[in-house]
């Protein structure tokens, strides 16, 4: 094969190989993430301002149930929480934790992070997966506004 043909093939293959590699680097670790337990969390929607009730005592929070299988969040009332048997965590019964993180992806970690992928992740060991249902409007969620109430047993 001519030298020029080899460079042509490398030139065409290089971007394709790059896309395949970064896809594998990003998607492979998340495949090993398979949490089973849903969890209840609260978000302080008003960020810095706590809402108090008429007695000026209780802090009102919005509660959500995170459906781990469908990666969706559903708003629930505080009275409904008592219906569930909860493990306060912070780790789930099968060893997963939810935390705010930065998107340092594998080989690109040495080159810096991707700030617009910051958000909440569920992780176990080194593998982790972004919680899509918890990050729909990231700009309203910041590190600290999230509070895990418990894992539903």
């Amino acid at each position: 094969m001519k030298k020029e043909n080899i460079t042509l093939i490398i030139g065409i293959a290089l971007p394709i190989i790059f896309i395949i590699i970064i896809s594998l680097v990003i998607y492979l670790p998340s495949l090993s993430i398979n949490p089973k337990y849903d969890f209840i969390y609260s978000i302080n929607d008003n960020n810095y301002y706590y809402i108090k009730d008429e007695n000026d005592k209780e802090i009102k929070k919005t509660y959500y149930l995170y459906d781990i299988e469908n990666n969706t969040s559903h708003k629930i009332e505080s009275v409904d929480i008592e219906k569930y048997s909860l493990d306060p965590g912070p780790s789930s019964p099968d060893g997963y934790t939810v935390s705010y993180g930065y998107d340092n992806n594998g080989i690109f970690e040495i080159f810096g992070s991707n700030s617009n992928r910051n958000g909440y992740y569920i992780s176990k060991g080194n593998a982790r997966k972004r919680l899509g249902g918890l990050n729909p409007n990231q700009q309203y969620y910041y590190n600290g506004s999230f509070e895990l109430i418990g894992w539903i047993k």
């Binding site: 460079t7 042509l8 093939i9 490398i10 030139g11 290089l14 971007p15």
Partner: peptide
């Protein structure tokens, strides 16, 4: 880099 290799090849 791919552009340069394609052009050369």
């Amino acid at each position: 880099l791919a552009y340069i290799l394609i052009a050369y090849g």
